[in-house]
Design a protein around this nucleic acid. Structure first.
Lengths: 233, 233
DNA sequence: CTATAATCGGAATGAACAACCCGCTTAAGG
DNA sequence: CCTTAAGCGGGTTGTTCATTCCGATTATAG
């Protein structure tokens, strides 16, 4: 299909499209009309479609490179001296990139919540997990969070920074979110923190707003506990 | 115009439209097509437009009531015994509501980042501010956050919970965000927390990822500090 | 220079929506 | 009943997009 266009002008156009798409997606996220990209590239919409089967394919092609660089950065930080700096610094760095390139935010947000079958996406999560686990082992990150939660917080931070673009200093929301990831220190163990867990499956629990504190994450866990209590052995 | 429709059937239709709109917006947010709402209400699109000049007006009409209830709740908590519980409980409660009613999330998100000229919106921010300041005075919330930041965190929490609907326990992201709002305890004062401020205007600073820590929030503040140092008096 | 197949551009298509319009229906006062 | 204006519905218009199509253009091999 498009194993590589043969004609010189076609190859040139492909490059121009990629450049224009990068700029446009970075500026306005994945919602920019494809016609705008074509115009910025100085080609017709048809030419874009000869190179990329759908707009989404173009988006992925443009963003893949950036995600790769981010994964590279994470990997490079895997054996940094200070795991805490590596982890928190990485989060901040990614958010900062995303502020100049909304495509990153959109791409990372896209597959949160779905079990990602996308290969590149798994790599990101994997690399982030290494940083997270090292930071947790070093006592710099509370032990009750997992990668998927951190990833969601990362995406959330990017969205919040975007909401506040124009008001307030950039990176502020991310700092606050990061501070929620830091471990408790002595004197603050459980009283104010939200670190209670389900008694059966150890899922972190949300403190109940009123009444007695919850002990299980779901009714099925509550029943399981009840069965254990009544059926001996 | 629509001071109140006169005919009985018209009044009935108006109610059905409001009910349908409420359900639809709650389920899918402000993006549901207006035609869907009309169909669910069992009326034509024209009938919707006789009652509400635009889709946005309908959305606001539907959501206003809910926002009012939320503001009421905040006001009711203003003199609760425990300011910490009141504040954190309120945040959690709002997020929980928003999980069953996406319109709330959309409405609250709408005016973050713009200086809201919307009256109802100001009331929400104001009520939240009271809870925040009481919690801060009680030492339950770090003192370097302002309402607008909290409000953004609130919206961000709602968005993150929505991203994770289906995976993981609801309320989890909000808990983590809340923990980022808790004050530092002894032994943890400044080392790991992101609480450095600009030396000139006291804007909270993002820690620099590499190199020396930042001391100013912008180059204009850096220059101001320099002028102070060089120009005596 | 010519032939010709690869490429191009942008008009055309089709879908999704908000908003408008107007001929038909019906509530309700007499 | 009958009248009549308020109210109705859904077809129509206008817009914004993604995607497709095809006649016109152009690179390039010979």
């Amino acid at each position: 299909m498009s194993g590589q266009p043969q004609r010189a002008d076609a190859r040139r156009n492909r490059e121009r499209i990629l450049r224009a798409a990068f700029d446009a997606f970075a500026a306005d996220g994945h919602l920019v009309p494809l016609d705008d990209i074509a115009r910025r590239a100085g080609v017709g919409a048809g030419t874009v479609y000869r190179n990329f089967p759908t707009k989404e394919a173009l988006f992925k092609a443009v963003v893949a490179d950036r995600i790769d660089r981010i994964v590279d950065e994470a990997r490079a930080l895997e054996d940094a001296d200070d795991p805490a700096d590596a982890f928190y610094g990485f989060l901040l760095w990614v958010v900062e990139r995303a502020m100049y390139n909304h495509a990153i935010c959109d791409a990372l947000a896209m597959d949160v919540g779905t079990f990602d079958e996308d290969h590149r996406d798994q790599e990101f999560t994997l690399a982030l997990d290494v940083l997270l686990q090292r930071a947790q082992a070093a006592g710099a990150v509370r032990s009750d969070v997992d990668v998927r939660e951190v990833r969601t917080l990362l995406v959330g931070s990017m969205l919040m920074e975007r909401l506040r673009r124009s008001v307030g200093p950039p990176g502020r929301m991310t700092s606050l979110v990061c501070d929620g990831l830091r471990p408790v220190t002595k004197g603050n163990e459980t009283s104010s923190r939200n670190e209670t867990r389900c008694e059966v499956c150890a899922t972190p629990l949300t403190p109940a707003r009123t009444g007695r504190p919850a002990r299980f994450c779901s009714s099925s866990c509550r029943q399981k506990a009840h069965r254990r209590r009544t059926k001996p052995g």
